[in-house]
Each structure stands twice: as C-alpha cells, then as structure tokens.
Write a protein that binds this DNA or RNA. Structure first.
Length: 502
RNA sequence: GCCCCCAUCGUCUAGAGGCCUAGGACACGACCCUUUCAAGGUUGAGAUCAGGGGUUCGAAUCCCCUUGGGGGCACCA
C-alpha cells in the first residue's frame, strides 16, 4: 500500500459535532494503525455560516479528544504543518478557480446563467409532475453570442460540471463493498462555482483531496450517494481516485441521523458535563465498530493497535448515553489520584461559581477523599453532588429524613444526643474513621438499636442527605467541630419539633 | 417521487455454512457484600437472528422477493 493519507475536513459552521468527531477518530485510527498521515483541513467556503468561534471550538475539542493531526492550517498560534497547504479552503480559492477554468477550457464544464428563481420554478414544476428533480441542461450548449447577451444583461453565471447522462459509476467501498450508481440519478450537471466565483463543496473536496494526495476518503454514509460526483470530478481533473469508506451514521433514539434538534451533538457539551476524553473516544470507537473480541474498555493506543476499517459495521448506531456514562465511570476509576484531582478542579470551580458550595477544597483535602469518591463518580460533574455538603457553612437537614422509619422524633433526638456524646469522647486527636466506628457500634449494641437506623440518622444530620460516601470517612472529612455542630443543630431541630406546643 | 445503503436481545455488538438449544456489554430484576449510595461478585429475564421463498446434507451466515428503516437528490457542508 502506498503511504496512507487521510483527512478530516470539518466546516466551521457549528460546534464540533459528535458525528464529525467519530469520523475524525476513525480516520485518525486508520492513519495511525497504518503508519499514515492524518490531515486536518478547514472547509470554510460557506462564508455566511462559518465563524472563528466555531473553528476554535472544533480545534479545542479535537485536541481534547487527543486527536492530533500531522498536517493542518495555522490555528491559534500553531504554525501550519505539512507541505500540501494551505489547509484552509478560503486560502485555496485561486486553485479552485484554476481547476474550474481548466474544466471550462476542456468543455467539461460550462457557464450557466439560470437564476435561482428560474431554477426554483423548474424544481417546483418537476416536483408537481412527480419527476426527479434535476437540472434540465438549458445552458449546456449556449453559443458565445448567447453568453454575451446574458453578460450584457448583467447576469453572473455559475459554472456547471457536465455529468455524463448514462454511465454507471462503480466503486469498491472499504466498508460497504461494491456500490453502483447510475449517473442519471445525480440530478444533472453540477454547480461547482457560485455566481460570486466561490467554489462549492463537491468541487473543493475533489480538488483538495487530489491536491493533498488523499489515498482514503473515510466519511459518513450520508456522502455515499454523492461519491459518483466526486469520482467524475477526479476523472475530469485527471487525478487518481482515492479509495472510499463510508461509515454508518450515528443515530438519534428515533433512528434518524443524529441532529442537534433531537440529541446533544456538541462534543463541548459532553466535556462540560464531566465526560473524560478516554471514555469518549472509547465510546465513539465502539459506535459502528468492535474488536471482534469481548474487550470493550480500550485506550486510544489500544484502539489504534486493533483498528480495522474492514470490520466496521454497515448499519447505523443509536447513541446511548447510559453506556457512555458507564464507560466514563470505568475510565474515571482508572485515573491516577493526582490526575483525577486536576480534572476535578474545574468542576468544583463551577460549583463555586454557581453558589452551590462556599469554598474550594485544597488538593490535599480532595486527595484524602478520593478513595471513597473515585468509584462513585459517573462523571466529573457529579463531584458537587457527592461532596458538596463538606464545602458549605451549614446544611439544613430535613427532620423527616433524619428520623428512621422505626423511630419517632423524640427517640431519634435522644439517640443522636447519645451518639453525639460518644463521638465527642473520641476526641479531636484520634479523629479517624476506625476510631469513631467501634464506640458507636458498642452504643448501638448496648441500646439494642439497629446500626442502620442510628447511622442513617447521623448521616442525614451531618450531611443533609441520605446517599453519601461512607459515613465515618465523611465525618473525618467534615472535622471534629463541624460534625458535632451539625449534630447539635439536628438535635435542636428535632427537639423543637417534638416538644408539645405551648 | 427517483437513486443508494441497511436489517441479530430495548441499546451497542459477537457471529464470514455445521463450534449457535445465538455469546458479551449497557440498561433492567434478584441475590451476595454492606451503615446509605456506589463499586464489585453471582445470577435471571430479554433476539422463533424483520417476513417469505430458494441454494445446501446443513443457513443468523449465500441468492431472490417483500416489508421496514435510513441516507442522498441546493449557487449547504
């Protein structure tokens, strides 16, 4: 095989989309597995919808995913890499113009003066007549005089590429096998240059893939039907036709192509919600592909090692957030403590900014908590819920939650008072989980209580919630004074409530 | 409407003619562990392999048809 050259060519008309990320990943895995080159090209010819903010988002999120390109444009301080540049289509305009002129000169393309209104009218007529919408070829054979007349009218022509009327285009798709499409299904001659002289997608993609010596075009299945247009263009340009591989689409729960309308599609949103790139990449790789073994938790390096385009599935795959969360938990549990602390910090900051906590823990405090916290985090963003009660001045425990089912308010208050005494006797100096637990268990035994009842009452009194990390570790983290203070407050509340009204 | 692609548990998938009375994972149920919640372990339920025809000694696997789903048909990408 000649040196593999693949690319991801997003257009900055929106945030990095899940589907684009998956396509980027598969291209990247394919390139790395085969020792090839992975190219990043920005398709920014849709000036009306492209923005620098979107461009930055795409770059940031690709970086976040760990997908690094070998060749690519100047972006945010990074110099251009590669010798096939520029890698930004708006900087390649002269090349498209030159290619279009060549096709024009060879009569493989022609100038079309039909106005958008005329085309629209024709399209409507065809629809009404239940005909396949296609360009009718009205300008296909204009004489020089006719063209001059249109020019004199001030009409600005587009350039149309001649699609041969009755040819069958055949190609061997790397994931789908042999595909045949008749040129009559292509909608007639194809506009390749707008009247404002900017090029259109199908044209730029062929010109650039040829110029950048792309060997394998790996993209979403939504481009399958467009592939004959590209093949025809490669031929007309006298370029080598790359191999194609069309990936199955990622689907909404209703099995339509995943869209912003129906699903969360921005990679940035998943990042903000506390997914980590290890899990995200792992999940994306498993949408439409598997190793063929029962291995599922795989690092980027392992994915590269095992990736095989020929075993990619053909059918679309529904995005399943629950499975992503499970994988995220798997990967969070595998993180080294210091690493996890670093990743948690921004999420704690978010909690602080939102006013859900009153201060940030030190790295040391957070580190001490990690053993009981790490396996309880489905996402990094769950940290606030998990330990927030440690980072606020006070918690207001709901008396209804403090009182166990078997007890009433007065009993609970009395039990907590005894427990408070026992805990206080442990003392600040020997304030460790295994110093607190035994005396409390003895108390439970002496009084004939259920350990669960007392512990739950203490838990709610001290944290304000029923689901927390292990109780004794929690009290240690809270500290001696705050634990006692919260117990006192809960006891007061309960007593005030169960006292007979005056 | 026309063209193309696809079809195994709810979901992601294994399966390249006999290893399949279809395996794994997520989610779900039960149990174990256990101070709650998780995590972990065990286990259960869950797919007549869309339907129908072939081919074959034998089909989830090959062929055809039907049905269903998706995608594409722009001076968007």
């Amino acid at each position: 095989m000649t040196d593999v050259r693949v690319r991801i060519a997003p257009s900055p008309t929106g945030q990095l989309h899940l589907g684009t990320a998956r396509t980027a990943l598969f291209n990247y895995l394919f390139a790395r597995h085969n020792g090839g080159t992975f190219i990043f090209r920005l398709e920014d010819t849709d000036q009306a919808r492209s923005t620098v903010a979107f461009e930055q988002d795409i770059i940031d999120e690709l970086h976040w995913l760990g997908i690094k390109w070998d060749e690519g444009p100047v972006v945010g301080g990074e110099a251009e890499r590669g010798t096939f540049g520029p890698y930004r289509q708006m900087q390649r305009l002269p090349r498209y113009r030159e290619a279009a002129d060549r096709l024009l000169a060879e009569d493989k393309a022609y100038q079309c003066y039909c106005t958008p209104e005329e085309l629209e009218t024709e399209r409507k007529r065809q629809e009404a007549a239940h005909e396949t919408p296609r360009y009718n070829g009205r300008c296909a054979n204009l004489t020089a005089a006719q063209r001059a007349a249109f020019d004199a009218e001030g009409r600005k022509p587009v350039v149309r590429f001649r699609i041969p009327p009755d040819r069958t285009i055949v190609f061997d798709d790397l994931v789908r096998g042999r595909v045949e499409i008749d040129t009559s299904a292509l909608g007639g001659d194809l506009v390749i240059m707008r009247s404002d002289e900017t090029p259109l997608y199908h044209f730029t993609v062929a010109v650039d893939d040829a110029a950048m010596a792309i060997t394998h075009v790996i993209r979403g299945e939504d481009h399958l039907s467009n592939t004959p247009k590209h093949i025809l263009l490669f031929e007309a340009l006298g370029s080598t036709i790359p191999q194609f591989g069309h990936l199955p689409l990622i689907l909404n729960p209703d099995r339509t192509k995943m869209s912003k309308r129906k699903s969360q599609t921005a990679v940035a949103d998943y990042r903000a919600q506390g997914f980590i790139p290890e899990a995200f990449v792992n999940y994306l790789a498993l949408l439409g592909w598997s190793t063929g073994t029962e291995e599922e938790v795989l690092s980027l390096a392992e994915l590269i090692e095992r990736f095989d385009l020929s075993t990619v599935n053909k059918a679309g795959a529904t995005f399943d957030r629950e499975r992503l969360e499970w994988l995220n938990g798997q990967w969070i549990r595998r993180l080294a403590p210091d690493d996890l602390i670093d990743r948690l910090c921004p999420f704690l900051q978010t909690e602080l900014d939102a006013g859900r906590i009153d201060w940030l823990p030190s790295d040391q405090e957070l580190g001490a908590l990690l053993p009981v916290v790490q396996e309880r985090l489905p996402t990094l963003a769950a940290i606030g819920d998990l330990i927030g009660f440690l980072l606020v001045e006070d918690v207001a425990a709901d008396p209804a939650l403090i009182v166990p089912k078997r007890w009433d308010g007065a009993t609970t208050a009395a039990a907590l008072r005894e427990a408070r005494g026992t805990i206080a006797r442990v003392g600040r100096v020997s304030w460790e989980a295994d110093e607190i637990e035994p005396p409390l268990r003895r108390l439970v035994e002496d009084r004939g209580w259920k350990a669960g009842d007392l512990f739950m009452a203490i838990r709610v009194a001290v944290t304000g919630r029923t689901a927390t990390p292990p109780l004794f570790d929690t009290m240690v983290a809270l500290g001696y004074e705050r634990t006692l203070a919260r117990l006192d407050r809960a006891i007061e509340t309960l007593e005030a409530q169960s006292a007979p009204s005056p």
